[in-house]
């Protein structure tokens, strides 16, 4: 049994360290997508702070023992944001940071959407939207059956919750009153075809989750202190699942994407745009 990374205190020093990591992760995302020539920058950048808070502070995991039975699990249900996950995994030591530049290329382990058979640290393959919360439910039930105290984190997109299966899973998790699962909604407000409230509004989102028996926390998904506090609070809620609804900006950290989020779901920056974005992030 490995020694899993201990949950850290969210002291000021930690916040600075974490912010430094988010910068590295965002730079990786911009570089790897530009190199790949295709992929999803907007939703990767919006999810970055939420992921860094988990992997570098709140989740029990160990890059040297990625299959450890007692580890916390993470499911990127919005699998197209995998540049963020790959970057966080590489920075956590699961594989070499240089591998990131192989994203989406033939022969690379870093497939266009996460493949658990190829990448250590990916707890389940994903990419087809709507399925991750169900998988999280299965992992949470296994934890109950085995009397283990690991936690399961599932990150979804806000467009993704248009999928009916999400609500099947939400109902079942509420029904079984599972408090070892924490969902995270990356509420950046946009899906491929445009703003979510124009394409197919999932609002009121908070009321829907409450109606399904969930504890709902609303935060600014780029405020690291708020993120860490929400993960802590979710752990203390017993007898019901928690969802963190995180307001985020699509393309966060890259000016031209923040200014025009509709255009940056599935298009990548040119070499010039990428290099400007990287220097701004630095």
């Amino acid at each position: 049994m490995s020694t899993l990374i201990k949950t850290a205190n969210s002291s000021t020093t930690d916040i600075y360290k974490l912010k430094d990591i988010t910068k590295k992760v965002r730079i990786n995302i911009v570089k790897m997508l530009s190199e790949a020539g295709s992929g999803h920058p907007g939703g990767s950048l919006s999810a970055t702070d939420l992921l860094v808070g988990l992997y570098f502070c709140k989740m029990k995991h160990d890059a040297s023992d990625p299959k450890c039975a007692d580890r916390d699990r993470f499911i990127l249900s919005k699998g197209h944001a995998c540049p963020a996950l790959y970057s966080v995994l590489a920075e956590s030591g699961y594989f070499d940071v240089d591998e990131l530049m192989g994203l989406r290329k033939f022969g690379s382990n870093l497939q266009g959407h996460p493949d658990m058979k190829r990448v250590n640290g990916v707890d389940i393959s994903s990419g087809s939207l709507g399925q991750g919360l169900s998988v999280g439910l299965g992992m949470a039930l296994a934890g109950v059956v085995d009397k283990k105290n690991y936690r399961v984190y599932v990150m979804m997109g806000d467009g993704e919750i248009q999928e009916g299966q999400i609500w099947e899973a939400a109902m079942a998790i509420g029904h079984y009153k599972l408090d070892n699962i924490c969902a995270i909604l990356d509420n950046n407000g946009y899906q491929i075809d445009g703003p979510i409230d124009q394409i197919m509004s999932p609002y009121p989102i908070v009321d829907k989750w409450k109606a399904f028996g969930w504890n709902v926390l609303e935060i600014d998904g780029h405020d690291m202190e708020a993120i860490l506090d929400a993960y802590d609070e979710a752990k203390t809620v017993k007898g019901k699942p928690t969802i963190i609804i995180a307001k985020t900006l699509k393309g966060k950290g890259v000016g031209l994407m923040e200014a025009d989020p509709s255009s940056w779901h599935g298009s990548v920056p040119s070499k010039e745009q990428a290099s400007e974005a990287v220097s701004n992030l630095n």
Binding site: I124, Q131, S134, V135, G138, L141, G143, D146, Q165, E168
Partner: peptide
């Protein structure tokens, strides 16, 4: 799992990923 087959299959995958 109730009348929700898609969710049942995903739940099964999650359980199996934990060694079940």
């Amino acid at each position: 799992m109730g009348i929700a087959e898609a969710n049942m299959m995903g739940t099964a995958a999650g359980l199996a990923s934990c060694g079940k």
